[in-house]
């Protein structure tokens, strides 16, 4: 096989495209990405082939829903990248770029999910991944308040939520909805969003609601239904050496607005941050008001 000469773009691609130096001389780690963490079993087999052929017959599963293959010798990088492309395995990011967008399974299999977060993440990979930024930029999407994909720890996080409504004609007066609601609300706002009136009918107080849907799940006759689904939006979250939780900037944002919000957040991050600074750190200087105006 004739050796291929690499042009400038390809060299840049090589440097930025998820090949990291290992602590050991001449060895590198290949970082791949799996949007939404959804990986076909067939493709998983390809990972096994690469790990056997180029690495030491094991992989490292990262916390960012990627698979890394360590122990790639420098002289094998090019042919590894070719094989990888052939297999349709996607490269991860390192350096000053946006990272793999992570997601929980959401309603694809989870009984708590309001949206199919996994599928949504796969669709959003194009918008969210690999953008040049001052430091790094991470996006997470999670299917409900349980926050399994940790939207508050990412530079930009989306958390699905659902507003419930009750059909009193269907109610069989079991009081279970008020019981679960009391438990949810006792941990936060104190006041429950559902109280039973004297005829054992539920009365809903939206201002106390957490929109996590426990009432919908528990109601034995499905008198409670989810009326509206949307997303809470958090910005500026990070962990690292100086952790900072993301700040909530919006509620019940429609799914179709997400791509624009990602684009605008990346744009605004580039506008306000110094080189090497994370979004949250920059936001601490510039304030939330302007950020909301620009992003939402």
């Amino acid at each position: 096989m004739a050796l291929k000469k690499y042009n400038e773009t390809e060299l840049l691609d090589l440097r930025t495209g998820g090949v990291l130096k290992q602590i050991q001389k001449d060895y590198f780690i290949l970082r791949t990405r799996i949007p939404g963490g959804h990986l076909k079993a067939e493709k998983l087999k390809k990972y096994a082939i690469l790990a056997k052929k180029y690495g030491k017959d094991y992989v490292h599963v990262s916390t960012r829903q990627g698979i890394e293959i360590p122990w790639i010798h420098i002289k094998n990088i090019n042919s590894l990248l070719k094989d990888m492309k052939k297999f349709g395995i996607l490269k991860g990011a390192c350096g000053p770029r946006s990272r793999n967008l992570i997601a929980c399974p959401g309603s694809s299999v989870c009984r708590f999910g309001f949206v199919d977060a996994e599928k949504l993440a796969m669709k959003l990979d194009k918008v969210a991944f690999g953008k040049e930024v001052p430091k790094k930029f991470k996006v997470a999407i999670t299917g409900c308040m349980n926050s399994c994909a940790k939207p508050q720890e990412n530079d930009l996080g989306f958390q699905a939520q659902g507003e419930p409504e009750v059909d009193l004609d269907a109610c069989i007066h079991c009081t279970l909805c008020a019981k679960v609601c009391e438990k949810v609300c006792a941990r936060g706002k104190g006041q429950p969003a559902i109280v039973m009136d004297k005829d054992k009918k539920p009365v809903y107080r939206k201002e106390n609601c957490y929109f996590e849907g426990d009432c919908v799940r528990v109601c034995p006759v499905s008198a409670w239904k989810t009326k509206k689904v949307g997303f809470k939006v958090y910005i500026g979250g990070k962990v690292g050496r100086f952790p900072r939780f993301g700040t909530e900037i919006a509620e019940f944002v429609e799914e179709k607005k997400i791509p624009k919000i990602i684009e605008k957040s990346v744009e605004y991050y580039k506008e306000i941050a110094n080189k090497g600074e994370r979004f949250g750190e920059a936001l601490d200087r510039t304030g939330l008001k302007k950020a909301k105006d620009k992003i939402l």
């Binding site: 009984r111 069989i172 079991c174 009081t175 279970l176 799940r217 528990v218 109601c219 034995p220 006759v221 499905s222």
Partner: peptide, 16 residues
């Protein structure tokens, strides 16, 4: 209650 409903059975009564 929630799981039995999710399995598709019909719940007729829930009473303390």
């Amino acid at each position: 209650t929630a799981s039995t409903k999710e399995e598709g059975h019909e719940i007729l009564k829930v009473e303390e």
